[in-house]
């Protein structure tokens, strides 16, 4: 069953058509990763699915319902979004940040309920930031900060979590931490995950389905083994990749620029 579906979506961004006629399906309960070169439209697609951008043509469906018809407050209970650049102007504590995740459930002027407090504690525990609860974000390392943001998305208690390049700027240990956390949220908490990633090996190792985009067009999509192939990578990234199998998943050992004219 598909939780998110786009039908012939076109998106204008800065007066340029950045997404063309894109139809994709995102299955419920799986990890779906968008891959593609810089500027291919990954972030635009993510923001369109999250209703942060309005498509100029076509529609996006969440649980078979057109998101245009959904209330913003309802969307926030079904889908948590972690944008690419998440800054805070005030130097909040981790707990204050995670508390924001409960906003969709709060009524005007009401204070935090018992359920809110439980969900906040649970989210911080899931993302292993409970020991950092009182720390200010500016005092955290990049990896800790990203886990705090993920905790906020978890506290939002939605079926679907959308993440735009959640591992950017992190060192490889912290990247792995974040990926394992996302995998755990998917397996143990049954969250549907949609994310954009640059690291193809992470995409291959942690995803169920990949969607490859190039120049705003859908290039190819499907199970990891079908998408990460030498031919596809040549078409999408213009690279010549050496792919091996590791634990039944493709892994890119090394890669070079593709030189046209050389024999494949």
């Amino acid at each position: 069953m598909n939780i998110i579906e786009t039908k012939k979506v076109c998106v204008n961004y800065d007066k340029k058509l950045t997404i063309h006629d894109l139809s994709i399906q995102i299955p419920k309960g799986q990890i779906t990763t968008l891959i593609g070169p810089n500027g291919c439209g990954k972030s635009t697609l993510i923001r369109t699915i999250a209703r942060l951008l309005k498509p100029c043509d076509g529609s996006v469906f969440l649980d078979s319902e057109n998101i245009e018809q959904k209330k913003t407050s309802e969307m926030a209970k079904e889908m948590a979004v972690l944008p690419q650049s998440n800054e805070v102007a005030n130097d909040l504590t981790v707990q204050e940040l995670v508390t924001f995740g409960r906003i969709p459930y709060r009524h005007r002027f009401s204070t935090l309920s018992k359920v809110d407090h439980e969900k906040i504690d649970w989210a911080m525990e899931k993302a292993s930031v409970q020991d950092l609860a009182k720390r200010r974000l500016s005092t955290l390392s990049g990896g800790q900060r990203q886990r705090a943001w993920i905790a906020m998305a978890v506290a939002q208690d939605t079926d679907t979590i959308i993440l735009d390049e959640p591992t950017t700027y992190l060192d490889l240990t912290h990247q792995l931490d974040v990926m394992l956390l996302i995998k755990e949220l998917n397996e143990k908490e049954h969250r549907t995950i949609v994310m954009a990633l640059h690291d193809l090996n992470h995409a291959a190792r942690f995803s169920d389905q990949l969607i490859a985009i190039k120049n705003g067009y859908l290039q190819t999509c499907g199970p990891v083994n079908q998408v990460i192939t030498r031919d596809n990578l040549r078409n999408i990234f213009n690279i010549d990749a050496k792919i091996i199998q590791d634990h039944n998943r493709p892994m890119i050992l090394t890669y070079n620029r593709w030189r046209s004219g050389e024999s494949a």
Binding site: A50, A76, K77, M79, P83, N86, L92, F100, I103, P104
Partner: peptide, 16 residues
Amino acid sequence: NLLSLTDDSIKSLGKN
């Protein structure tokens, strides 16, 4: 308090 987040974050929390 919400205004310290980015516009995208505020919208995805369901606030106008």
